[in-house]
């Protein structure tokens, strides 16, 4: 019997400090046993429990894409016990990864459609996975227009800056980066909140699906913008977070109504969310 609580051992290969406040770091990890990589077959939107022996586990969205083989990427905001310990770890250290867990963005069902990705703050991680996946040469033709609205507090808080620069130069995606405010008179990004920029840039819902991932306040104000343009609740896809332990629907804490965020989510459509109590 496979033990679903047993993490795969991994080695931290590279740590990148993502943000100016040094509170968000990306961890590139490689499996110690190559056969574990095959068993860890994942899709954009899924998460994993990062395990630090002696401290515990925490659920983190997978920021790498299945099209990038050889490693996994996790972008971690320092917030609690395990994430703080992770931030103290160094390249070469051994930790554990348990997963992949949860469901994933319904990218197969989105074939032939326009895709709108809306992300805010450090919730851009699984959207990075999605974007890298869709932009891979073997996948790009499966989708029509790809638009991205990504916002952060200021320039220093944007994740994956070198990749953002490269994506801005591509003609096959519309990337709109915005910051809440900036001291820089020559700021190269939009200035304003995500809902406002979404309203300016996303003007049609025709044949489109939107994925929103961000802080609750951003979601709260972006949702009506999308609905005004004509997005149906079935076509607005969100990723939820709740406190988790087991990640496999057994420990009982992350439920929203009868659904467990870890097993039945984290990806839920707005249509589904409308049928559930607001316990997230």
């Amino acid at each position: 019997m496979d033990n679903p609580y047993l993490p795969y051992p991994v080695r931290i290969e590279e740590i990148t400090i993502e943000t100016e406040d040094r509170n968000i770091k990306s961890f590139r990890v490689v499996f110690l046993n190559p056969e574990d990589e095959e068993r860890f077959s994942y899709r954009p939107g899924q998460f994993a429990e990062l395990s630090v022996a002696g401290t515990g586990e925490c659920p983190i969205g997978i920021a790498s894409s299945p099209t990038e083989s050889g490693h996994l990427l996790f972008t971690v905001n320092k917030a609690g016990l395990v994430t703080s310990q992770l931030h103290n770890m160094q390249e070469g250290d051994v930790m554990g990864v348990r997963g992949p867990l949860g469901n994933y963005y319904p990218l197969d069902e989105m074939e032939g459609k326009n895709v709108v990705l809306i992300g805010g703050g450090f919730a851009f991680t699984t959207l990075r996975s999605t974007l890298v996946y869709m932009l891979a040469p073997e996948n790009r033709d499966r989708f029509e227009e790809i638009s991205v609205v990504y916002g952060a507090r200021d320039e220093g808080m944007l994740l994956y800056k070198s990749e953002l620069g490269a994506w801005l130069l591509r003609s096959d995606i519309q990337l709109h980066i915005t910051v809440d405010c900036s001291d820089d008179p020559f700021c190269q990004y939009h200035i304003g909140f995500v809902p406002g920029i979404t309203e300016q840039k996303i003007t049609s819902a025709e044949n489109s699906v939107a994925i929103i991932c961000g802080p609750p306040i951003m979601i709260k104000f972006t949702q009506p913008v999308l609905e005004k343009v004509g997005f149906l609740p079935e076509d607005i896809i969100m990723s939820l977070e709740n406190r988790m332990k087991c990640g496999i629907g057994m420990c009982g804490r992350c439920n929203v109504g009868a659904d467990y965020v870890c097993k039945d989510g984290p990806i839920l459509t707005l249509a589904k969310l409308n049928t559930l109590p607001k316990e997230y």
Binding site: Y5, G54, G56, K245, C246, M250, C251, G252
Partner: peptide, 19 residues
């Protein structure tokens, strides 16, 4: 009632994960 928590406990240089 089956809900459980998972916690790490360490003593010196050894530890265990408990539920």
């Amino acid at each position: 009632c089956w809900c459980f928590d998972i916690q790490d406990e360490t003593h010196g240089r050894v530890g265990c994960r408990m539920r």
